[in-house]
Simulated scan of single mutants.
Amino acid sequence: MLEKLEQLKTLFREMEQAIIAYSGGVDSALVAKVACDVLGDGAIAITAVSPSLLPEELEEATIQATEIGIAHKIVQTHEMDNPNYRANPVNRCYFCKSELHDTLKPLAKELGYPYVVDGVNADDLHDYRPGIAAAKERGARSPLAELGITKAQVRQISQHLGLSWWDKPAQPCLSSRFPYGEEITIAKLQRVGRAEVYLRKLGFSNLRVRSEGDTARIELPPELIKDFVMANDLQAIVSEFQGYGFMYVTLDLEGYRSGKLNQVLTPV
């Protein structure tokens, strides 16, 4: 772990200056932390804001950037203006990351920064991530992936560095809550976001609310499903979700599994 950390520091020393595509997730936060420690003012964290990012996630990212001590800027991205993105094809993430890096690359050039880096880790290379290709096409680098640093190692290094969010659950953009082919709208994104925030306030941090038509499907870690059913007023939850615009509210008995919607792409 410490060897990987030293390799990461060396990589940033060689870069001298870098812009970090920073979502506030544990991966990009580690990249921002090490970049800031090595480069100081030569590192800037940029968070892209769009309807697919929860306001609460932006707030957390801002707090974390302050704790890290890195300069933090916010930019607006407009992937929702792209009909290819809204149509939600299987390569939707390609159009999202295209918009992101088409925004960051000219910004880096304007500021005189030679590199744009992201938080893609080594495990991501073995998952279906069409957005990785979009980033590479635009010259972005992925230090964690380049050095073979896995998600587990990201958490280990983050804990070693004293980052309080080292065990923060993954939080991909809200557009990942919809089955491929279902059109994404701002209203749908807001509906899903409000539902997830509501459940987190009940004490469940690692969860998803999948949306298909008028149906919300709650996914929780399998070991928490029984507690969820026994400890909560289910009708109150249904009423809350219906207030957001859902008609039906269901609980996934298999439980939460990262990338579950991708199972339609290959036989299981």
Rank of each mutant, 00 (worst) to 15 (best):
A231T: 13
A45H: 05
L104K: 02
K136A: 15
T185E: 12
G148Q: 12
G203F: 07
N82L: 13
V264K: 08
S205G: 11
S205Y: 11
A21D: 00
K260G: 06
D41Y: 08
N82P: 10
D127F: 00
P89E: 09
G119Q: 01
K9G: 12
G181M: 11
I19C: 04
D81I: 06
K260D: 04
P55C: 12
D118H: 00
L161P: 11
G193H: 09
L53G: 10
D167C: 13
L251Q: 00
T47G: 03
H78S: 14
I19N: 02
R129T: 06
R129Q: 08
A134N: 08
V197M: 09
D124T: 06
R217W: 08
R208E: 03
A21L: 00
A152F: 13
N84M: 15
E254H: 10
L261K: 01
I157T: 14
D102N: 14
R257N: 01
N121D: 08
P51S: 13
P221G: 10
A231F: 03
E254M: 09
E57S: 07
E212N: 15
H160Q: 15
Y198R: 05
E67D: 11
Q190Y: 12
I184V: 14
K226R: 15
V116P: 01
Y85H: 11
V38F: 09
E254N: 11
Q76L: 13
Y198M: 04
R177D: 05
P89W: 09
R210K: 10
V116H: 00
L100D: 03
D37M: 14
E6S: 15
D37I: 08
V34G: 07
T266K: 10
K33A: 14
L30N: 05
V120A: 15
P130T: 06
V26M: 01
V117I: 12
I20T: 10
R177Y: 05
V26S: 01
G42W: 03
N84C: 12
V238M: 04
Q242D: 03
L53M: 15
G25T: 02
V117Y: 00
L234Y: 04
L5S: 09
E183S: 15
G40F: 07
Y113W: 07
L199K: 04
L199Q: 06
P83V: 12
K9N: 03
P130D: 07
T77W: 08
V238G: 04
A65K: 04
L265K: 00
L224C: 02
Q76Y: 12
L261P: 03
C173Q: 06
Q263H: 12
Y248D: 12
H126R: 14
H160F: 15
R208M: 02
S158K: 05
L111S: 08
S239W: 08
N88T: 13
M1I: 14
A29R: 02
Q17P: 01
F204P: 09
H72I: 07
V117D: 00
L261N: 02
V264E: 05
I70K: 05
G25P: 02
A18C: 10
Q17E: 11
E99D: 11
C173W: 05
I46Q: 03
L58F: 08
Y113T: 10
E14F: 08
L253Y: 03
A122C: 04
K33F: 14
A29M: 05
V26R: 01
G139P: 03
F204I: 11
G112N: 06
D124I: 05
V34P: 07
Y256S: 02
A18G: 02
P172H: 13
G245M: 09
L199C: 06
V264S: 07
